[in-house]
Design a protein around this nucleic acid. Sequence first.
DNA 1: TTTT
DNA 2: TTTT
Lengths: 177, 177, 177, 177
Amino acid sequence: MINRVVLVGRLTKDPELRYTANGIAVTSFTLAVNRPFSNQQGNREADFINCVVWRKQAENVANYLKKGSQAGVDGRMQTRSYENQEGRRIFVTEVVAESVQFLEPKNASGGGGFGSQESYGNPSPSPNPYEPANDGFQRNQGQAPGSGGQKGQTDLSDDPFASDGKPIDISDDDLPF
Amino acid sequence: MINRVVLVGRLTKDPELRYTANGIAVTSFTLAVNRPFSNQQGNREADFINCVVWRKQAENVANYLKKGSQAGVDGRMQTRSYENQEGRRIFVTEVVAESVQFLEPKNASGGGGFGSQESYGNPSPSPNPYEPANDGFQRNQGQAPGSGGQKGQTDLSDDPFASDGKPIDISDDDLPF
Amino acid sequence: MINRVVLVGRLTKDPELRYTANGIAVTSFTLAVNRPFSNQQGNREADFINCVVWRKQAENVANYLKKGSQAGVDGRMQTRSYENQEGRRIFVTEVVAESVQFLEPKNASGGGGFGSQESYGNPSPSPNPYEPANDGFQRNQGQAPGSGGQKGQTDLSDDPFASDGKPIDISDDDLPF
Amino acid sequence: MINRVVLVGRLTKDPELRYTANGIAVTSFTLAVNRPFSNQQGNREADFINCVVWRKQAENVANYLKKGSQAGVDGRMQTRSYENQEGRRIFVTEVVAESVQFLEPKNASGGGGFGSQESYGNPSPSPNPYEPANDGFQRNQGQAPGSGGQKGQTDLSDDPFASDGKPIDISDDDLPF
DNA sequence: TTTT
DNA sequence: TTTT
């Protein structure tokens, strides 16, 4: 059934790249999308929309976008639920990006050599937009994810998992492809 | 900034129509949107996306759609947060529908005389898509909401507020228009 | 760059299925999409939007949709140009559908056994939405297109090319995949 | 019925602002939207999509965007037809923008003081997206269109109609509001 | 008739 | 807490 979302906004923080147990890259980020009108108090508000991207695009986003970057997302809405630590079921709504467009100008952010290109995971894009996007991810334990060292990565944290103490609860069996 | 969502799915339950303290109609409903592919286990899953509509369209939706109805939504994603009873801040992501299209055939559901028309709130549509959609609504205490008695309403509960024991926590001061 | 279209409307005519020289199916159809408001004269107008679909979906559309069928399209806008018979360059804007959703009810149109399922061309959907959609197509000369005989096809013309006298001017070399 | 388009691209030329006989502003421009993949010959192609905006947004676009500017459009597809000089009926497909987002960085284009804000025509946006967008427009003969002299306008032609020799064939009777 |  |  039809499920389509298009957003343009700015990243509220640096994106977070992780890998599933099988080395599939997944990046999550939040887009702040300003509302076109001000509220009763005269302030412009924003919506903060959680997004995930998979595979090659995940690495592109992690490498080329950072807090404050302007980006466009074309994807689908996804809902899922999980049990939190108190045993409560938490419902989550987020956007699974099928493509992410970098909208920063070429000469932005000091000198990075990246432009306004779009990020696609592979020659046939949008394989399956319904990849699981569970809360916890496999911590990448040393295996080479196959993407390191792209230009632009240096302005991200060296270890994208440094702040990630979450338990392992995703395996590639969850991936529908 | 760009924030656009289009969905086609089926209502998981009868829509819920409420009124703000000032008599502004707001209807909430959840769309089940089937995913185009099956998961690892071979099952087709769905996303369950919460939607709200305001004003005239709210009444149309409440009058003409019910559990299982197929509908299209064109709107925007909205996030908000509230404190729950345990003092926890809960984040909510939902779709504010600017228009809702009824996709049931004319002769559907037995004998309702409604067709495949689209629901718009007013001649100039989509006034402000960022209307508040807080969790609790004013219980309508007897004032005429200005729309009752449209054909088709009979197949809905006579008192749309009967099951609504939520506290009053929205006033028209919150409405940005 | 972002290029996204979502439409719901009704086919103005039976869809036209053709095949490229290499046997790739392509179906074209026009969606009438009613405008939400009436014009100065009080009439509801419609937009008539040309759409194309490729491969498996092309065959599904040809098999299961016909004049008057309600359908949803998720795709991209595409422009192209060609020389007409007077040597004039004609510019064309159309929608390349990545997915087509059938919105007719199960029991519609007399008894056809088709439902409200979505049509996708292959397990990894939407390979390349920028397939050429030139005006003339290869007339299928006897090779098996690989899809005949699906249920529902009987209510379409036996020979989908019978009325097609257009010259051959597309080859698979034009296909970017 | 659902009819939604979202585009991000670059203006192929300076936008063209005109006025109807009643002084309603309308701006037309073409967006070049790059395709995400290269064609058979290895080149990246683009789609060239004609867009129109009305009223206040028309003036904003004319004042703040120019050839090469990056912009996002959220709107609807519209078709219309007209007789050309040879008496042939020409069919036109274009996008009626309900909102236009300026995606150029704040410090772009030398020194213009405009940022990445979105252009809306009025506090209640998107009154009627189905405004006529005929080929020829009334040449504004001296009446003040009510918007001149906004900052940024200096980098546009002083007389937006200088190159416009088209006959008058639109009147406000055509405007559905 | 096309943009970076 | 989920629809056909």
